[in-house]
Amino acid sequence: MPILYGANPTWADVTPVPQEDGGPHPLAAIAYAEEYSEAMGYLRAVMAANEYSQRVLGLTEHIISLNPAHYTVWLYRAKVLDQIGANLADEISWLNPTALQHLKNYQIWHHRQTIIDKLGSPEGEGPFISTMLEQDSKNYHVWSYRQWLVKRFDLFDEAELAWTESMIEADARNNSAWNHRWFLVVGRKGGQALEESIVDREIQYAKAAIRKAPQNQSPWNYLGGVVRRAQLPASSLKDFVLEFADLDEPDKVFSSHALDLLADIYTQDEDKKDEARKALDLLAVKYDPIRAHYWNYRKGLLDSSPAAQQIA
């Protein structure tokens, strides 16, 4: 049963502020149900009076149940929790089922972040995130939230890396998991140099994933990123790339991404422009024709300055 605020003595001191639509035929107008309309009238009134109280907390919960995408209610609820010194662990327990129902909601995640930040502990968040990712393994908000959590509580540890690996193992094409690995291993370093052992480990990791599915672009992008970040020449990957694409055997190419990288390696070698051209032609004509314009653009760059050409 909806709470009928108007007939409720605990709300008798509040005069609701009715919805104002600005004119006779507002656009994209909603024929609000009485329950929603009344609750919103009371919210407008308590917000105008800056009231922070238990009853307002209940009111926000009621409105969220009717419209979880209502950022105003979430922002005001966060303020109420703060002002009345509410039990934040209770807030998280209440939040969990709501979040599971509304995976693509910006507000819920931001609210959660605000609460966990104040609680000062990441306890229980890992398992909760895993539950969310089971439903939608590439959910942008969830991954962004996990990054915030790692940064906030300095969780750049082996356990986090192992968990990320398990996500990649479950689906080597989950690019969000690859991005998280980058965030853990490389991102945390800021501008600092990466240790050689880490660079080697990451290169081997990406190569192993590529061998399992050479047409999976996620590890290729990762590999290229690591090599660039470590300031290694792209040519250091040449032997590996030749396993999947060799110009001497143009009919036996196993990965367009290998051919792409091979073109780049040749591009950086003044004496290998013809080979670069040949690799780009193979991409444009045979192995990745939808991007023919792009491959031809890369070909056009071969005659310009070297700085403009480097991709990987």
């Binding site: 107008a29 909603i30 609000y32 149900a33 929603y36 995408a69 209502h70």
Partner: peptide, 11 residues
């Protein structure tokens, strides 16, 4: 105009 069940687009 939108019916009442479209309240989630209110914001």
């Amino acid at each position: 105009n939108y019916p009442a069940q479209m309240a989630p687009m209110d914001a």
